[in-house]
């Protein structure tokens, strides 16, 4: 078994797949630089991320997987889970070595792992599409911040810019310290010099908000209360759908 050390990037991961064929390594253990602890008995092979090599592997994979699986691959990568890199690596080699259609082999452990991890990331993306609560600022920008379990921000622009095409908005990931800004034309990644803290009640201080913002927060809280049917109260079901860790985003849970 050979030990490969890579930089944790998607490009690096795909380069590692390339090198494993180039070096004819039958079995590879893949670790990131961040998690690598030097070992007396085994020296690692350092992967140098290489755009061209990465692209060649990706093109090879795309020949064997449809659009849906390409997205799954990327979603699984965004999960930041410790064992996902190894699964992606094994998966890539398996798909390249097999005839097309091997992605349907859900009994294969790496295929199943990628499919399940991608599903988790997809769910988190979907939750963000649901739980983002914009606040309108005095200068007309709709602002929201989030702390998603996985790095789902790169998956969000399409959804939000299709929907909010005529308003400027920012969605900021406080945990990973970057955000998305849509300026009516395009969505770009931004970093705020001084990112706001995740506060329990309103995300932004009231002096930067639009004067009507308070009214709509209030009306939304009222609506949330009025639309509930007391006789059907079912806290377990409520919490299953809206896990407690997301409550901090939700203005209706602050009333």
């Amino acid at each position: 078994m050979e030990l490969y050390i890579f930089d944790g990037s998607l490009e690096g991961l795909l380069t590692a797949v390339f090198e494993s064929y180039h070096r004819k390594s039958p079995v590879v253990k893949l670790v990131t630089e961040a998690s690598y602890i030097p070992d007396v008995f085994q020296s690692g092979f350092q992967i140098l991320s290489d755009r061209e090599k990465g692209k060649r592997v990706w093109r090879g994979l795309c020949k064997k997987m449809g659009k849906e699986w390409q997205l799954r691959f990327y979603k699984a990568f965004l999960s930041e889970q410790p064992d996902v890199f190894q699964h992606l690596f094994n998966f890539s080699r398996y798909i390249i070595d097999q005839p097309a259609g091997a992605t349907e082999n859900f009994a294969h452990r790496d295929v199943l792992a990628i499919s399940q991890t991608a599903q988790k990331v997809h769910r988190e993306k979907h939750r963000m599409e649901a739980f983002v609560r914009f606040q309108k600022t005095g200068d007309g920008i709709y602002y929201a911040h989030i702390e998603p379990d996985f790095d789902v921000l790169p998956l969000l622009p399409e959804h939000f810019q299709n929907r909010y095409a005529d308003q400027r908005w920012i969605i900021y990931d406080l945990k990973r310290k970057y955000g998305l800004y849509y300026d009516l034309e395009k969505t770009e990644e931004i970093e705020l010099a001084e990112a706001p803290q995740m506060s329990i009640v309103n995300a932004l201080p009231s002096d930067v908000l639009d004067p009507k913002e308070q009214l709509y927060t209030l009306l939304w809280q009222d609506y949330f209360t009025s639309t509930n049917i007391q006789a059907r109260k079912n806290t377990r079901l409520h919490v299953r759908h809206v896990p407690r860790r997301y409550w901090k985003y939700l203005s209706e849970k602050q009333g």
Binding site: H126, E129, A130, F131, N162, R163, Y164, A165, D166, Q167, F224, T227, N228, I229, Q230, R232, K233, N234, T235, R236, L237, H238, R240, H241, V242, L250, E252
Partner: peptide, 22 residues
Amino acid sequence: KGIGDAEGTGICHTYTEDGRCV
């Protein structure tokens, strides 16, 4: 380039305390 998009799957933005989707 208006506002809103109703294509595809629906989204439950929150759930009432009785567990129904909003």
